[in-house]
């Protein structure tokens, strides 16, 4: 019962602040709203007793990503300015499409007969670590290594954008 009440509170927080984050016309405020969404998501992981994922969510998303976004926003000019509002026509069309998309998705999700997972998701960190280094069926060493190349490539792409002209 307690878990259920917590779930509804967190879900409300996620929905309300997601909505605020995309509708806010000030970049800095949108970032802060996003922070609440990410924190509440971590709360959901705690409810299902998936502590490792909740920790990751807090450290990487709420801690790292939001801090990064804040830095990026601070470095851009005119953070106080309001973003231009889209025209009424655009708002109506986008609204209709969003409602239609959400309607279809929600009705499908509600209509589906979900089976309760039998997998033990409350794994401890030791098993997760072993899986990361395992090259068998449940192992993740290949994605782990490939992601590292992806990160390298992303860094180099960032350098391409940021590098100055050639100077002797």
């Amino acid at each position: 019962m307690g878990a259920q009440i917590m779930f509804y509170i967190l879900a409300t927080v996620i929905v309300v602040f997601s909505f605020l984050a995309v509708t806010s016309r000030k970049v800095m405020r949108a970032t802060v709203y996003l922070l609440f969404v990410l924190l509440a998501t971590a709360g959901l992981y705690f409810i299902i007793d998936y502590n490792f994922m909740a920790g990751i969510q807090l450290i990487v998303y709420a801690g790292g990503i939001v801090a990064l976004i804040v830095f990026a926003v601070m470095l851009t000019e005119k953070i106080g300015d309001k973003i231009e509002s889209p025209s009424n026509m655009q708002m109506i069309l986008a609204g209709l499409i969003s409602i239609a998309g959400a309607g279809v998705t929600i009705s499908v999700l509600l209509g589906h007969d979900f089976k309760q997972s039998t997998q033990n998701i409350g794994q401890n960190v030791a098993t997760i670590g072993e899986n990361l280094l395992n090259y068998g069926k449940d192992g993740y060493v290949l994605p782990f290594e490939v992601v590292s190349i992806l990160l390298l490539a992303s860094m180099i792409a960032a350098i391409v954008v940021a590098k100055r002209k050639f100077e002797n």
Partner: peptide, 15 residues
């Protein structure tokens, strides 16, 4: 991961 790795570097190349 593959599809992301295929497209992210290209954004850098386009710039």
């Amino acid at each position: 991961i593959g599809i992301e790795m295929a497209s992210l570097p290209v954004a850098g190349l386009a710039a």
